[in-house]
C-alpha cells in the first residue's frame, strides 16, 4: 500500500510541479507548448517508471532497442492497462496520441493534454474542418520526428482478447502516407490491473514491449482497402496473443 501511495503521489504532484516550475518558464521562453510539454511528460514518466523499478525490484521492463528507436512512426498497440499510454510516453520524447474524451473533462489535466497537442476522440473534435486541422498537425508532428501511438481497440481489454479494431488509425496513416509499426504490450495489466487503484508491486513481473510487425501498405494501389490493412494488423496481434498463451500454458 505504501508503494502505491508513493507512486500516486509522485505521479500527481509531478504534473503540478511540471506546470508551475517547468512548463510556464519554458513556454514563456520557447513559445511552443506541444514540444515542450511532450518532452516534460516524457521525462516525468521516465522517472515514474524508474521509481517503480527502484521501489519494486520484482518489476522488470524489457524494452528492446528497435522499439526505443522508433521515430516519425505511427505505432499501433494492444491495450491492456491504463499504464500502456504512460509507458509509451516514457519511451518517446516527442509523442502524441488520440485521447478518450473523458480525460478532456478533467480540470487542469485537460488543459495539459490540449497544450501537449494530444488529439481528443470526441466526435465534435473529429468532425468537419477541425478534423483536417488535427490530421495536418499529426503530419507535421511525424515530420518533426515525433510518434503517434494509438490503441485501435479504443478501450482496455479485460479478457486478454482483442476487441474489434477501429479503422481510424489506419486512415490517419494513409492520410499521412506513413507505414505502421505494430508494438505488442505484455503484462502492464499485472502491475496495474483494470478496475483497481493499487500497484501490484509484490508480484514478480516483466513488462515487455515487442515490435511484432512493420506494415507499409501501398496506398496508391488500385485495390487498396483500409479494412484489409486493419484486418491484417488485427490478425498479427491475434497470432501473437495465441502464441503467448501457448507459451504460458506450456510453462505452467
Amino acid at each position: 500500500m505504501g508503494i502505491t501511495i508513493l507512486l500516486w503521489g509522485y505521479f500527481l504532484f509531478g504534473y503540478l510541479f511540471i506546470l508551475f516550475f517547468l512548463f510556464i518558464p519554458c513556454y514563456v521562453r520557447l513559445k511552443s507548448s506541444d514540444a515542450v510539454l511532450q518532452k516534460l511528460f516524457h521525462i516525468h514518466l521516465k522517472c515514474f517508471f524508474s521509481l517503480v523499478e527502484f521501489l519494486a525490484p520484482g518489476i522488470k521492463f524489457m524494452i528492446p532497442e528497435d522499439v526505443r528507436r522508433l521515430r516519425s512512426s505511427i505505432i499501433v498497440c494492444n491495450h491492456i492497462s491504463y499504464l500502456d499510454p504512460i509507458l509509451l510516453v516514457s519511451l518517446f520524447p516527442r509523442q502524441t496520441t488520440i485521447v478518450k474524451n473523458t480525460f478532456f473533462s478533467v480540470p487542469i489535466f485537460s488543459w495539459f493534454l490540449r497544450k501537449a497537442g494530444y488529439v481528443p476522440s470526441a466526435p465534435s473534435e473529429m468532425y468537419g474542418p477541425a478534423m483536417i486541422n488535427h490530421l495536418e498537425g499529426i503530419k507535421r508532428h511525424l515530420a518533426a520526428g515525433g510518434n503517434l501511438f494509438v490503441f485501435p481497440e479504443g478501450t482496455r481489454s479485460h479478457s486478454g482478447k482483442l476487441a474489434p479494431f477501429n479503422k481510424g488509425v489506419f486512415s490517419i496513416a494513409r492520410y499521412c502516407n506513413t507505414g505502421l509499426k505494430l508494438v505488442f504490450i505484455r503484462h502492464t495489466n499485472k502491475l496495474f490491473r483494470p478496475g483497481t487503484f493499487s500497484f501490484q508491486t509484490c508480484e514478480k513481473n516483466t513488462i515487455a514491449l515487442e515490435l511484432i510487425a512493420s506494415l507499409t501498405p501501398d496506398y496508391s494501389a488500385d485495390q487498396f482497402s483500409i479494412s484489409t490493412v486493419a484486418d491484417q494488423a488485427k490478425l498479427i496481434f491475434e497470432r501473437k496473443i495465441a502464441e503467448d498463451r501457448r507459451r504460458e500454458d506450456a510453462g505452467s
Binding site: 466526435p123 478534423m131 490530421l135 479503422k167 486512415s171 490517419i172 492520410y175 496506398y219
Partner: peptide
C-alpha cells in the same frame, strides 16, 4: 458515415 470515412473518401 463518420469523419474518418470522410477522410477515406477524400483520399
Amino acid at each position: 458515415f463518420d469523419s474518418i470515412d470522410a477522410i477515406e473518401l477524400l483520399l
